[in-house]
């Protein structure tokens, strides 16, 4: 008997929790309120089904509980009922799927006026690269990564020379302009995730993935890594600042291009590289130790 009551309480409690608890998504700061709307549709449909099934069960348990002399009815099946339920379910599923796929096709088709921004993940920090005056990102290759060229930009590609390189610092974006985030990793899988933007995608070493969005609010947002990338994974945070156009340009003016960054080092001899490499290796293992110490 208690179980019937508890089943009702579970439905009531879950619904109340849903509406009254303080835990809900963070205010959105991108154009992906489509996604939020799809989630809301899904909550409604699934919520109704959950309540219906559990309450029906509670009623059955209460109404048909065993009492002396009771005997169950004998009904092997009811084709009509089963077909009917199948059709209703199929309709519900379609109601979820169609808007979902519609929004997905928006999600994967980048508008042509989106500017490209490259994010490079590495254990355990974020770096960025923005196209320079030519509006084009130079090509890149993990094999070209050296301490002087942490993002592996291919030096012989003229498009890459004027690219703005932001190593292990904050990214700024102008508000209201669509951006296509090109995602790359030079070691393991990472995932560039800003909860307020709703979008995310894994970064896969050896290939370039992407997603796009339009920031709709200025402010400072936290970047989290959302794909397990080793023991520093939870510490792999970053910051995205969405600026007004003016602030953004000011920030951009302070950044260095690839050519500027690599100019002084290029005079050094090539066989200097191994020493530098170990140096930077020990820098990262120092990071590892601090991770361990925490």
């Amino acid at each position: 008997m208690a179980i019937a009551l508890v089943l009702v309480l579970i439905v009531v409690g879950s619904v109340l929790f849903h509406f009254l608890s303080p835990w809900w998504w963070t205010p959105i700061a991108s154009n992906w309120d489509y996604i939020d709307n799809t989630i809301i549709i899904t909550f409604w449909i699934t919520g109704v089904v959950f309540a219906a099934v559990v309450l029906f069960m509670a009623y059955c348990v209460f109404r048909f509980r065993h009492r002396e002399g009771n005997r169950a009815a004998y009904e092997p099946e009811s084709k009509r009922l089963e077909w009917w339920l199948t059709v209703v379910t199929a309709a519900g599923v379609t109601a979820l799927l169609v808007p979902g796929l519609f929004v997905w096709s928006r999600f994967i088709n980048v508008p042509s006026d989106a500017t490209e921004v490259e994010v490079v993940g590495q254990q355990w920090q974020w770096s960025y690269r923005l196209p320079g005056k030519d509006g084009k990102l130079g090509t890149s290759d993990t094999r070209d990564v050296t301490p002087e060229n942490p993002l592996g930009v291919i030096a012989s590609d003229p498009n890459g020379q004027d690219d703005v390189v932001v190593e292990a610092a904050d990214l700024h974006l102008p508000v209201g302009k669509p951006v296509k985030m090109l995602l790359r990793s030079i070691d393991v899988l990472h995932d560039f995730y800003v909860p307020e933007f709703r979008a995310k995608m894994d970064m896969v070493p050896g290939s370039v993935t992407y997603f796009w969005f339009t920031p709709t609010k200025t402010g400072t947002f936290q970047v989290l890594c959302a794909e397990l990338c080793g023991q520093g994974h939870p510490l792999m945070r970053g910051v995205v600042m969405v600026d007004t156009e003016q602030d953004y340009l000011a920030w951009l003016g302070e950044q260095q291009t690839f050519a500027e960054l690599s100019a002084p080092q290029q005079t050094g001899s090539v066989d200097q590289t191994p020493r530098e490499t170990t140096a930077s290796g020990s820098k990262i293992s120092a990071r590892l130790e601090t991770v361990e110490a925490r």
């Binding site: 799809t38 989630i39 449909i45 699934t46 799927l97 929004v103 997905w104 709703r198 995310k200």
Partner: peptide, 21 residues
């Protein structure tokens, strides 16, 4: 039922984007 229904969130590709991981 509860877990199956939240599966409809995660199976619906675009809803999975913010929720995955």
């Amino acid at each position: 039922v509860n877990g199956g229904l939240t599966g409809l969130f995660l199976g619906n590709v675009v809803v999975d984007v913010p929720l995955s991981d």
